[in-house]
Amino acid sequence: MAPASHPSGDKRFKILDVTMKRHLYQHDALIEVLHKAQELFGFLELDVLLYVARGLKLPPSRVYGVATFYHLFSLKPQGEHTCVVCMGTACFVKGADRLLAAIEQQAGIKAGQTTPNGKLSVMTARCIGACGIAPAVVFDGVTAGQQTPETVQQQLKGWL
């Protein structure tokens, strides 16, 4: 039996219901359902996690454990734009730390934070497998290679 949808009447929960149904409410679909939830809501609020736990008939501890284990899931709201600096070894030896320092200085925040106006989130990643074009930065999901402090600052100018 599918649980009744969310009392708030938010349409996005309906879409989440469809996703869970497509996976036959199987426990092993948890990661895929959380991906969908993050796509819909932008981040994983506790309320959403509880909703998923109820839908898949899993203990909330299990859902929370998985959501916090994987780096991609965020329990905090993200900025309008994201900027992810790759800190893999190939990028690092080619100056990724200088890129990050330039970004942090320009945005006035540290990696892992979002600007107070909610425009930009700055993050770091372990190796993203773009070592051939190191140092790499991912702007809103698009990977850009051979970056310099000047090119990243140029890119971020319109976003702040």
Partner: peptide, 8 residues
């Protein structure tokens, strides 16, 4: 899940 740094 190719995650080892420097591998692509």
């Amino acid at each position: 899940d190719e995650s080892e740094p420097c591998t692509f």
